[in-house]
Nucleic acid binder design. Sequence first.
DNA 1: ACCTGAACACCGTTCAAGT
DNA 2: ACCTGAACACCGTTCAAGT
Lengths: 195, 195
Amino acid sequence: MVRQPQINAQNRPPLTIERIIESALHIIDGQGLGRLTMRRLGDSLEVEAMAIYHHLPRGKEQLLDGLVAHVAAAPADATGAAGWRDALRRWAMAYRARLLEHAGVLPLLVTGRNPAALTETVLSLREILRQGGVPEAAAATAAHTLLGFVIGHASLEVRGTAAWAEAVRAMEGPVDWDARFSAGLDLVMNSVNPG
Amino acid sequence: MVRQPQINAQNRPPLTIERIIESALHIIDGQGLGRLTMRRLGDSLEVEAMAIYHHLPRGKEQLLDGLVAHVAAAPADATGAAGWRDALRRWAMAYRARLLEHAGVLPLLVTGRNPAALTETVLSLREILRQGGVPEAAAATAAHTLLGFVIGHASLEVRGTAAWAEAVRAMEGPVDWDARFSAGLDLVMNSVNPG
DNA sequence: ACCTGAACACCGTTCAAGT
DNA sequence: ACCTGAACACCGTTCAAGT
């Protein structure tokens, strides 16, 4: 029985930034952002809360920055798509699903914290539009419009599907959010045209 | 010297929900959401923090609900507009300005808290579209698409104009956000058509 | 190098008490 | 009816100490 070097004396995997972020995301997804505390995060990692500061010197701020990066940095990819419209459509659907899976991170995304986390995503959208023949300025506008729509629509979905939103559904009527998002996406994409 | 009845023995205006919300919004706008605490709010109202609970029995949750309602409940109004497109355009510009003025409230808006706060706004958008001849289903889609775009774009603006976003501007290039929003708004509105 | 334990300043909230 | 003061359980973070 050879002890593996990456297993320490307490017989548990060592703390890494990746494990910390994943554990934090697990707490947010399961219990909500409000219940993510350094002490609870420490518990879930089987470590004292103070140990986390050794890996994230800037503390909770750095943890939240990492969560935003982990969720928001999902660039668009044109491989396997039938043209740039299809590529953007696929990306939008996937990005929306990602935001809804981690809806607890949405409030962090709109704080302006870790703005660099979105750079890769924005540039990938612009690149796909550019390759589709859309002029530079129009591509920049379309990229922000599309990304803004996806983030904002996901926010409305969180609001509309909240367990305590019965009164809203009574007033505004029931909504098929998948269909609603798809139709809205058409609305946005339909006026994006190559030069 | 007749003492006015609404001035109490300590010579200060009585606590009301309106004054509490306004004071809280003032703290958020000036110092950020993270510095809004019940104790600081009490200080700014020249009252002990515990006095606030007499007016907001559900405590800070109720305060945050009230803040969302105060900022997000701004319905569209067609009076004085040159047609429904102009009315929606004006509303979108005003709503965006409102969100940017109170950017610290944006994270609260996307939590799904107090979902009823947006009902009036959503219904007003649908009504203007309906009066413009847009069929019911298309109006519902357009309303959510427009509102989603405005909220999402405001989030991107907060991100792009953050003081610490120098690296982002270096990578993605400088942005005229007023022009960018206006162009994005055109993109969204251009495919909304009466039946 | 990595983690712990005790401590500090703060937080939201409850509750009995004051006026 | 409206507000206060003391108290409680919790929070993020620092720092000296352990291994």
